[in-house]
């Protein structure tokens, strides 16, 4: 168990270093001088020189990288070039908004996804199963931003039930969370079904039935816990993808979360902000996946007692 955790932590540290490196490269392999690109034609050479100095891009690359990593560790990545606000405080503000939205849609996706997947597995081969899986594949194939617009048209414009944009009242969360969560709910439902079907073929499920366990408990208690590992793996990746995917939804509902920050920074080519958003979204993603991997130990006693990988 300890070995497993240690191994996993080492790997994470390595990946985190890799991420800083990749993000750093990202900015520096932009064809042409990044500052020039950022300022486009607005700048005269003098100004470019000045901005370079401000951002520290006139220093040699290795030194720049070390400064960047130092900044990343100290949570200080300089100021946005355009708004002059510290990058970290902008990120934090955006992150809180997005995290709330993502958390709600995650809950939505997990509840709907797991219960529909279980239901489909229980009713395997029956019309309920085919129906649910058809809906799931439809949900997986529809772009979230399009679902968002359709929801806006139906519930905001035609029925006039729910607000069209913003996040200033609790009701506002409904449409964005559904739009963001649908795709994930659909894929959770699919993997839950597959994993459950795999598990219910196992001998211990037959043992449970032979003991006289209620059919519902066979599924909930005996099968689900065993089916959970692939589901949890998916959940981890998805929570991260949801943070990133929320930028599409944020655009539709005019929400100023971290996604909007990322898109704006890239369209404005605001160098420090681009670095900051990309880096920290990736870091959050990696940390979530780490937590997921460690949570396997809670599910699977083989990992807990040090046998499995």
């Amino acid at each position: 168990m300890l070995l497993y955790i240690a191994k996993r932590l080492c790997q994470t540290v390595f990946v985190l270093v890799g991420i800083t490196f990749a993000t750093f490269c990202l900015i520096n392999i932009v064809p042409g001088d990044p500052v020039q690109v950022m300022l486009e034609k607005r700048a005269d050479p003098e100004m470019i020189q000045q901005v370079r100095h401000e951002l520290g891009t006139d220093k040699p690359l290795p030194e720049q990288y070390i400064n960047f990593v130092e900044g990343a560790v100290k949570f200080d990545l300089g100021k946005s070039y355009f708004s002059k606000e510290p990058v970290m405080s902008m990120l934090l503000r955006g992150f809180l908004v997005t995290a709330k939205l993502a958390a709600i849609s995650f809950l939505f996706a997990v509840t709907i996804g797991i219960s529909c997947g279980m239901l489909a597995a229980i009713k395997r081969g029956k019309p309920t199963d085919s129906f649910l899986m058809m809906i799931a594949i439809l949900g997986m194939s529809a772009p979230s931003f399009w679902i968002a617009i359709i929801l806006q048209i139906i519930f905001g414009l035609k029925l006039n039930l729910l607000p069209l944009s913003g996040l200033d009242q609790p009701l506002c969360y409904i449409l964005p969370s559904i739009a963001l969560g649908t795709r994930y709910a659909a894929s959770i439902a699919r993997i839950t079904r597959t994993s459950m079907l795999d598990v219910i073929k196992q001998d211990y499920i037959r043992t449970a039935r032979a003991k006289g366990v209620k059919e519902s408990m066979v599924f909930i208690k005996h099968a689900l816990k065993n089916a959970l590992i692939p589901i949890v793996t998916l959940l981890g990746t998805q929570l991260g993808n949801m943070l990133a995917g929320s930028m599409l939804i944020e655009k539709v509902f005019s929400i100023s979360g971290i996604g909007k920050l990322a898109v704006d920074s890239m369209t404005n080519r605001d160098l420090p902000l681009v670095q900051g958003t990309v880096l920290y979204i990736a870091v959050i993603f990696v940390v979530i996946n780490l937590i997921v991997d460690l949570s396997y130990a809670l599910i699977d006693p083989k990992i807990r007692y040090g046998k499995g990988a």
Binding site: Q11, F14, V15, G18, I19, F21, A22, T23, L26, I29, V30, P31, G240, N241, L243, A244, G245, M247, L248, A262, V263, M266, R269, V274, T277, V278, I281, A282, F285, V286
Partner: peptide, 24 residues
């Protein structure tokens, strides 16, 4: 394998956006 791990460390959309940012 390490390179793959780093590539997989970014959420899909952010990764694609980053590359598009670089390439234009």
């Amino acid at each position: 394998s390490r390179v793959m791990e780093i590539f997989a460390a970014f959420p899909e959309l952010i990764f694609a956006m980053g590359i598009m940012y670089v390439l234009g």
